[in-house]
Design a binder for these strands. Sequence first.
RNA 1: GCGCCCGUAGCUCAACUGGAUAGAGCAUCGGCCUUCUAAGCCGAGGGUUGAAGGUUCGAGUCCUUCCGGGCGCGCCA
Length: 577
Amino acid sequence: MNLKKQLDTEFERTLTALGHTDAPAVVKQASKAEFGHYQVNGIMGAAKKARTNPRELAEKVVEQVQQGDLSNILTMEIAGPGFINLSLNQAFLSAELETMIGDDRLGVATSQPEKILIDYSSPNLAKEMHIGHLRSTAIGDAAVRLLEFLGHDVVRANHVGDWGAQFGSLLAYMDKLDAEGAQLATELKDLEIFYQSASALFKSDEAFAATAREFVVKLQSGDEKCLDLWSRFIEESIKHCQAIYDLLDISLTPGDVKAESAYNNMLEGTLSELDEKGLITISEGARCVFLDEFVGKDGDPIPAIVQKSDGGYPYMATDIAAAKYRGQDLKVNQALYFVDGRQALHLNQLYAIARKAGYITEEQNFVHVPFGTILNKEGRPFKTRDGGAVKLADVAEEAINRALTLIGDKNPDLTNDEKQNIARIVGIGAIKYAELSKNRTTDYIFDWDTMLSFEGNTAPYLQYAYTRIKSIFRRADVDPANLKQAIMLNQTAEVSLALKLLQYPETLESVTEDYQANILCNYLFELSQLFMSFYESCPVLKATDEIRDSRLRLCDLSARTLRHGLGLLGIQTVEQM
RNA sequence: GCGCCCGUAGCUCAACUGGAUAGAGCAUCGGCCUUCUAAGCCGAGGGUUGAAGGUUCGAGUCCUUCCGGGCGCGCCA
């Protein structure tokens, strides 16, 4: 049950009935506790349109609503220039909680199912995954989990970079090591070092550089030995990525990888089709697509190069082929690209070309979901070349170690296995939450200590709230399913907690509008804060039977909601910490 | 030069897309562990929302100009 939507619908209907068509009711959660639970903001706008007095209109609306179904669950109060403040009464809240408790989906309805492809993570296999990959990976995975929960058919698309000039030196280096009798499997253990060694050799050794360039040509022309080396490298690199995904609880599997090279055999055919449709122009020896929407200064058209003058295919060609595959073969309803905001022009060109070519229909929604660039503490861009890269694996390891130390202090009685498991879940939760909770499209600053913090608005805070509840149930030794006591909301802490719990469905709906995971993070943090206040001010086990059971049920629903919400974020909970 | 994104407390970020006195966390200061886990709770200080205009009942949010930052603009991905 989506409370906000229900109220909004009712007030919108009332406005319409009073002759105010096309006037949104704009029901929102109250901005302050003193205003009640919800507020209607749309009266002023409607009055303005109709040139009437807003407070008089508010009175009419209130009068009308009082005659309807909501009158016995709602207290209304007109305030300020024409707000209507709404408070839900406790019997209603308590009944709604009952419904929510009885629902495995916690009151969240399923959506009209669509086939939605999510392009995310998509690391370049020539490098080890670094901190910069966390955004796309964590946010994309949260979107995947949310959309699947809502009932959609989600296609995870890990569009890894496994092709192109950068592999020349890697293959040449592999070949060199192989010739020298080194164990390639061992050498590939640390990909970052491997890449750096190859890159260093490329810069310092002319002969090696020449060989590397030859390897690029050989690779593209399908040289067998070269392809063999290449596939060994790719296989190893994907294994590294998968290990990171598993460690981070990312739901991607090897089966979700569809690499750039998978589109190689589509490239020429796709470009021919573009040519047949008159979209291709040869400019300075390169095949380009010029579109009217993309012009620079003085109306100069900005090209999208789909084939370089040397015959090579840039990633635009691959991306067009992939868009065609996604649009025509997979027939997706939506494709969401969780990609760095700097690629905005590229992706907009891509979508425009794919539409012009008929690869994407009007009904198919291809969207760039952008995010900002990582900056260092000085606000300068994070450079990956000059040793500034922070490996994702290192961040994870550090987080787990810090969590382990802390658990040793706080809870020394746990077994080693328990500590290890908890440390992983808490540590990983902390770094994922750090990304997810500031899901802005702006650039953001990577700070090791902020990311690894376990205090305040962090995943461990939410996980801790969960363990406190679990601890109560261990002591009470009751099965929440057996509790039948109607929920009583006598303390303000109980009412606030109850209302927040009931707002879970509308929170998920607003996350879906723009895939902003931070909205869910904020909700879960506020829920935890309200629970913590409740925990401090409303004793559970010491209360008399009725109140005790009522509070136990509030506790249980809080735990379920926290666990569920964290689950959608890809963050696990633990029983103790 | 053209285009996109952005500027909110000392720091990191919110503000549900035009609503009421701009909120959290960290840091600082003061309280709270013989009572369900103190990774916690309660309280205090901290703001000309980069600047100036404009639109209107009402602007952090919309429009204009300026200042400052990041990024993108023909053969890297």
